[in-house]
Nucleic acid binder design. Structure first.
Length: 426
DNA sequence: TCTGGGGTCCTAGGACCC
DNA sequence: TCTGGGGTCCTAGGACCC
């Protein structure tokens, strides 16, 4: 009797060129045309349509370096619009949950799903049905890879990306070695630049070769994560599906500046703003922070100016999410690490040691704390209704000369009535 | 001129203790 | 004068992911 009928089946659903697909949804004219989406500050290219990839535009390439190709080929360029992408991402995830409520939302454009309850025979068809439903309901094209482990489903997905059907299943294939042999080592999930260098030095150039390396060798020469990767390539699940959303452990807000910043006052405003955002974010998740880190740096690409980078951390006496306390701490750190004569390119704030607000030991809590909490809540509510920074702190400044550049925004806001696409009746 | 942002986990090494 | 060894905890830095 065969028991392979209901083997473990993990699907990885990945949206194709997600940010580009989002922009295309509201702008049919750019379908089948080369399109790229830029990172914050219009710095790097972070999403490319297939047509743009075919032109040789690379992922993560600085925009200014690709500008020639872009102009010559009439590539459509967009600044990133994260509220739009976030909204569409939630729609995609909601659609996926109809097939199995236990999904792991792995990133803004990816989710893992356990499909073990379907039989080996029907699994590829199930994949196609999921793909079609997401496309129909949200307009977002996806690729789906299905295999026994997460790492293998990543590989299946990699193959699916190049297929017309968009779905690849490795389930029920007796020997997958010929498939793994064609996967370059740097395309394996968990193998980055450093590990690629290391493996290649030891004659491991593809996924099959890694699969066949001994665990003890890998563990000794690398670490447990690497041996887990190898085990997963052998079809033994080592990385669990994380279907319950775990509380985050830290919260970072950092930005590059639209223009270099030299004055303490401007830098202070920027840091205060990041601090307000971070504090609001953790309040919305009912978390408090044990410590705060502030960092500043000049551009690492302009060595002739001399590179300066520094950071410092302060522990709070009592864990907090109060903006007044976090901003005060952040500014005092900044006074410490600010160095005159530098052209700052980036700064950021990190709230760490996050824990549940309710568990905060309140030996010292007082009526004053209660008042501040209420003040924070009403600030959040106002800002939620009327837009961020309707209510702010004086230290956050008003002019914001350091603000990001976004020269190519599509200005689509799915939460804003007036930016809905207009349809002209002819 | 112009080079993103936000996470997690692991490890090595230092401090400290008995 | 001689100056152990093992354990824990913390932190900074690095590697990885998208």
């Amino acid at each position: 009797m065969s028991s392979t009928q209901f083997t473990k089946k993990i699907a990885l659903i990945d949206c194709n060129s997600f940010y580009v697909s989002c922009e295309r949804l509201f702008n049919p004219k750019i379908r089948k045309k080369p399109v790229v989406v830029l990172s914050n500050n219009d710095g790097c290219i972070i999403s490319r349509s297939n047509e743009a990839k075919a032109l040789g535009i690379k992922m993560g390439e600085p925009y200014f370096k690709a500008k020639n190709i872009i102009i010559k080929n009439n590539v459509h360029v967009f600044s990133s619009n994260y509220s739009l992408y976030g909204d569409l991402s939630r729609r995609v995830m909601r659609t996926l949950k109809r097939f199995n409520s236990d999904i792991e939302v792995y990133s803004i454009d990816e989710a893992f799903m356990d499909l073990s309850n379907f039989s080996d025979k029907e699994i590829e068809e199930v994949g196609k049905e999921i793909r079609n439903t997401v496309l129909q309901w949200t307009g977002i094209p996806t690729s789906i890879g299905i295999a026994k482990t997460k790492t293998l489903s990543k590989i299946a997905n990699h193959i699916a990306k190049k297929k017309k059907s968009g779905v690849t299943s490795l389930i029920g294939i007796e020997n997958i070695d010929p498939i793994l042999e064609k996967i370059e080592i740097n395309d394996v999930w968990g193998v980055g630049r450093q590990l690629t260098k290391f493996y290649q030095k030891h004659g491991v150039y593809n996924a099959k070769q890694l699969k066949n390396k001994s665990n003890t060798w890998i563990k000794k020469c690398s670490n447990v994560l690497s041996s887990r990767t190898a085990m997963e390539l052998r079809g033994i699940p080592c990385i669990d599906l994380e279907t319950t959303q775990s509380k985050r452990k830290s919260c970072v807000v950092s930005r590059s500046f639209g223009k270099r910043v030299e004055h303490f006052q401007e830098l202070k405003e920027a840091v205060a703003n990041y601090c307000l955002n971070a504090s609001e974010k953790i309040r919305s998740e009912n978390l408090v922070a044990k410590a705060i880190t502030v960092f500043v740096r000049t551009s690492p690409f302009q060595r002739n100016f001399g590179y300066y980078s520094n950071s410092k951390t302060i522990d709070f006496p009592i864990a907090t999410n109060n903006s007044i306390e976090t901003v005060t701490a952040a500014v005092s750190i900044l006074e410490d690490i600010f160095r005159h004569g530098c052209r700052y390119q980036k700064a950021g704030v990190m709230l760490t040691g996050l824990s549940n607000e309710n568990n905060k030991e309140n030996l010292f809590s007082s009526e004053k704390d209660e008042k501040i909490n209420r003040l924070m809540r009403s600030m959040d509510n106002t800002n939620y209704r009327y837009g961020r920074s309707t209510l702010s702190l004086a230290s956050a400044g008003v002019y914001k000369k350091w603000n990001m550049r976004r020269d190519h925004s599509s200005k689509i806001d799915t939460a804003d009535f007036y930016s809905l696409p207009r349809i002209k009746a002819t």
